[in-house]
Structures are given as C-alpha cells and as structure tokens.
Design a protein around this nucleic acid. Structure first.
Lengths: 331, 331
DNA sequence: CTATTATAGACATACGTATGCAACAACGAG
DNA sequence: CTCGTTGTTGCATACGTATGTCTATAATAG
C-alpha cells in the first residue's frame, strides 16, 4: 500500500540504505546515484515515514509547546512565531494544551517522542519541569519560569516598563492606584507586582491591600476587579493590569459601569497585543518584543538539544511604556 | 537509557508482548498478570514510545489541523474545541500552519503519519485535498470546502443569518448597503455573498459593484474597505462584513475617520466571536454554534478513519442574527 | 483415566528508516 | 607489480511496539 524506501531502492537499482542516504543528501553517495534515486522517489511518490525515522534515529525533529487555556488571546501570538522559527530550523511544532499541570501531562510529552519542549504556562510549583529533567528531555521556559528546576528561559523584564508607567502616573497626578494581578503562583505575576510596587515606591506611592485584585490572566478577572474598584467609596484613579487581556476586561467593566476611560479611571495594560493599538481600544500598555522572545526561546531550546552540556542561558527582554489613550491626567 | 517494554517484561517476569497487551488492558491477559505488569511499569517509570507504536500498528492516533494565518483571531477559537473533542476520543491534535497550499504541505501532512486531517482554510482550488485523497489519508473540511474533492464537511449555512440581517436592515431604512467580502476563491466568501444578495433582493435591494470590497478575512481588509466607502460622495449607510475580524477593522476605520457607529454608518459582522459581545465593541453579527461545528468536524473525521466506507456526510449549521449596538436606524 | 477444550502466555516476526562496518573498484605512488 | 588510498555501495542490524500463531497448562467432559 504505502511506498517505502525499499520500493524506491528497487526501482533505482540500489540498496535501501543508499536511498536513505541519497535523499538526505549524504556526501557518501555520488551525485549520479542521488539523481537516480530522487527520480525514482518522485516517480513513486515516496514520502519518508516519520515513525520509521523517529524509531531508527531516536529523534523526531518535533518540539512541543505546552500551554493552558488556548482561548486566551495572548497565546495565539506565541504560536505563530514559534511555528515559523522552528520550521526555519527544521523542526516541527506540536501543540499541547492541558488544563492541569501534572504527571499525566508530563507522560504525554515524553511518550510523544518530542526532541524538546517549550513551557509557556508553568507555575512556580509546576511538576512538569521535574519530570522532564528526570527523563533528560530538554526544555525551555517561555515567559514564565518555575522555581523547581533551573533551565534556559526567555522572559520579560518588567522593570523599565513599570518604571515608566509609575513615572507617568505620578506626573499626571495619580495617587490612588490599584492593581489587577495574575495568579500568585506565576513568575510573571510576581515579577510584575514587584516591579510595579518598587517603581511606585520611588514616588512615595504604595498600593493598599484593598486596591489589589488577583485572578487568572483573563478578561473576567479584569472585569471583576474593575467592578469591585469602581464600587468603592473612594475608587482608584488608575488601574494597572497584569496584562492586556485583563485590561480589556477592565475597559469592558468601565464601559458597562458608565465610567469614562480615562477621565473617570485610567487603565494600563501589559503585552501590547495587536488589539491594544486598535483605534476602538487605544490601550496604554507596556510593550516588549514578543516575537523576538519567542524566537529566542525556540533557539535556546534547539541549541540545548544539539549541545546538551551548554551552560544555562536566562534571557530577559526589555519593556517600555507605550502611551495611548487610556492613561489620563488628574486635575 | 530509555525504559522499554522489554525492561518491564523482564522485571515482571513475562514476555514483551504480554507487557504490550497487559498495559492496553487486553482480555487475553489475566488480571493478576496485568497487575504485576502495571506495578513493574510504574516502578521503572515506563512510558510507551509513540514511534514504536506508530510503526508497528500503522496508526498514530494523531490528527492534523491545517490552517493558514494563525494570527487571525478566528482560528484560535477552533483550536481549543478541536483539541478537547479529539482528546476525549483518544486522539491528539497536531497543528500545521502553512502560508501556502501546495504539494509541499501535502507531503508534510502525509509524512507525519497522521491518521487524518482537518482542513480549515482550503480554497476552492486547493491541491491538498487531491493529494490526500490519492494517498488515502482521510480528511474533513471545516468551515470552508473545496470543489476539487468531495468529502465530509462541517460548515455554516449563512442563509438564515443573512436573511434576518437583510430584514432588519430593510426595516430600519437602509437602502445603500455595502459589503466587505472575503477572497473569491473561498467557499465561505462565495456562500455568504450569495446569501446576502438573495436576502437583500427579496426587499428589492441590490449591492452595486462600487459598494463591494474584497480581500483576506482580516482587520486590514475591513479597514481599507470602510475607508473607501466613507470617502465616497454618497457613502453606504450600512456595511455587511464577511466576518467579525473584518468588522473589527471596519469599526476601527470608522473610529479613525470620526464616523459614529451606528448613527453615521452601521456595521454587521459574521461569526460572533467572544470579543464581539464585549461592552466596548457590541457588534451586531451573525452567530452560529462554532464549538458544535468543530466537534462535528472532529467526529466526522474520526468516524471516517474508523469506517472508511461510510457515505460522505455534509453537515451545515444554522445561523442567526444577534442584535447589538452597531446596526442603527435611518430616519 | 483419557480426550477435548479453554485459557494464558511465549515465540516469531513485521513495521520503515538509519547507521556502523565491510566490501569493492579505481587509481596513483613507490 | 604491489600496496595503500579514496570514494562509493551493500550488508547486517538496531530502534520499540503490536499481533498472528503456537504451546503449555489447567479445566472439563465422557
């Protein structure tokens, strides 16, 4: 039924191993034979079997990307550049989305014969990195890291962005500043909170406990937090959000409550997703080079696969504030 | 290095085939032996090799989803339910994004040892369906179909939705109606255009050529089309868009041009993406059960895989208008 | 007590490719 | 004329699992 390298070998009048080598452009095969083999392969419509190749070579040239919650607008923007970068280096991307982060997930990653894994949604207490390390399966942290195992990583450094945001908030007269932060077990939420608090502290501003809302990085969290804040007797004048998706939820809540942004309340995001710059949104947010970060993660992983003993490389990307229309002035 | 079924067999004191059967709960193995094997597997941390399994059984339980343009907001909403549905039926999803639609793509799909493919971005002149059919690799059309090969499909029937939209547009006094349509080589663009024109014709309205703009299903198209329309000496009072993403672009263009929606121009979308119902957007659009459609596509494919000789099933999903705030009344 | 059958497991082999090693031819140097 | 060298190909085998067939043991019937 299916055409194998043996069939090609027979037609070309060579042995099966020669076909294998010829089609991968092995220098040990003469140009004349290569040409003959290619012709034969073409004529039979031969397509090498990934399974056979994987079994024999022990490598699949396949890399997993582990995500939770694909519905979140943030992740599609990772997938596309990851795909491209891996492809340009001869690897394929295999998407894995899992609600939980447990042993079953780790097993699935391992059994799939992946050459490596990009972990994009690790929590600081994830078990997956441990399992992967035990198996010797290379991986890289993207965006978030886990405390359990040290590994190559590509993350954002929120310091500059939060610094600029704090500066502008202060200059524009904001003193009552609230924050809608991500889950406490994610490195991103922790780092952004620290960066924000330190930056505000430089202007003598602190965020009281009742001005802090925590939850998953989704619109519902932004919505819930903003509703809570707006209903307070003394609402904040500005809300800094853990990311853009949360900020979109905040904008929605403000609109629903009849509060004008930015004259009633200012909102700041983080990530600068494409939608943030849409004329109907114009979100003031903190930006960084997401595509470059994805590409870096892919590169780090491939280098790790190809030379496993390299020193660990932790790569941080600068961030900066992008002023648009959702951060106003207090008179 | 890696633990194989042979290692487990040795530890459990049985043969390798018995391990294979025991772990897959084959009735030919006694419960006592199964238990012993499971214990041994657990103790060694055995994880079966996908490649070995694929090579031996000829099946991978892996299904490809072929997309172009992951950046488009529409597609992530397909991926998540597809993932879930396939997983619940014991299959894994393998994402393939390709800019083009050519032989190379088909070859990649074939070599990957997929059990089947979901084609989500076929054009009517796609070559991939031909190649897959020649190879005997099962596939299903999702959303769009191709004329070249008949196959199972799950698509939207735009008739009712467009009918309701035309009705409301007419009742609210719109007579100059424009359309921003998708690429002419996609079945979705064609079907929606036909449905729209027929529905408007019932009210004696036709869309003149200069009120038609065509382009890819993205925000840029919506933006460009709307700019063009708004600059006309006699601009349309309403714009029907090929999908929501296009409509978002139209909203952006209107905002940039200082045109109020809906008092200056009305906008109608198609798909009812989650963002369409956001308070800051509130897009009037045509809705259908996208998740069910995805699940249907997955089910059709799996059934095709498991019984290849079934008759072809073409599944169409009803659509309906969802009124929100972007379709106004002409006084 | 023997013949028959059911049951559980072993044995052999297949799947398709990659790779170390041996074989061979052609050739030039000594 | 011999020997080493270089370049090209074939041979043998490994990768890890699944499955058809065969065998040993136990259970059952006559």
């Amino acid at each position: 039924m299916t055409v194998t390298s043996r069939d090609v070998a027979q037609l070309a009048g060579v042995s099966q191993p020669t076909v294998s080598r010829a089609l991968r452009d092995d220098p040990r095969v003469s140009e004349a034979t290569k040409e003959r083999v290619r012709k034969a392969a073409e004529r039979l419509g031969y397509v090498p079997s990934d399974a056979g190749r994987a079994l024999s070579s022990g490598r699949t040239r396949r890399i997993g990307l582990l995500l939770t919650d694909l519905e979140n607008q943030f992740y599609p923007h990772i997938i596309a550049p990851a795909f491209q970068q891996l492809e340009s280096r001869g690897y394929q991307l295999m998407l894995h989305t899992e609600a939980a982060d447990n042993d079953v997930v780790a097993e699935r990653l391992i059994s799939n014969g992946l050459d490596g894994v990009i972990l994009a949604t690790s929590t600081i207490d994830s078990v997956v990195p441990l399992r992967l390390r035990d198996r010797g399966l290379p991986f890289v942290y993207f965006n978030r890291t886990s405390a359990a195992v040290r590994a190559d990583s590509a993350v954002v450094d929120p310091t500059e962005g939060m610094g600029e945001a704090a500066q502008v908030l202060f200059e524009r007269g904001h003193r009552r500043i609230a924050a809608i932060l991500g889950p406490a077990n994610t490195s991103t939420a922790i780092n952004r909170e620290i960066a924000l608090r330190e930056a505000l502290a430089q202007h003598g501003i602190s965020i009281p406990a009742h001005y802090v809302h925590r939850g998953p990085f989704d619109t519902a969290t932004g919505q819930a937090g903003t509703e809570r804040f707006l209903n307070m007797p003394e609402p904040p004048t500005a809300i800094v959000c853990g990311n853009d998706v949360v900020a979109f939820g905040a904008l929605n809540a403000a609109r629903s409550a009849g509060a004008d942004v930015p004259s009633d309340v200012s909102i700041v995001g983080f990530d600068d997703l494409p939608a943030a710059s849409w004329p109907i949104i114009r979100l003031t947010t903190i930006s960084y080079d997401l595509d470059a970060m994805v590409r870096r993660a892919a590169d780090l992983l491939i280098e790790r696969i190809e030379s496993p003993s390299r020193p660990v490389e932790e790569s941080a990307f600068q961030s900066r504030l992008v002023m648009r229309d959702t951060l106003g002035r207090i008179d």
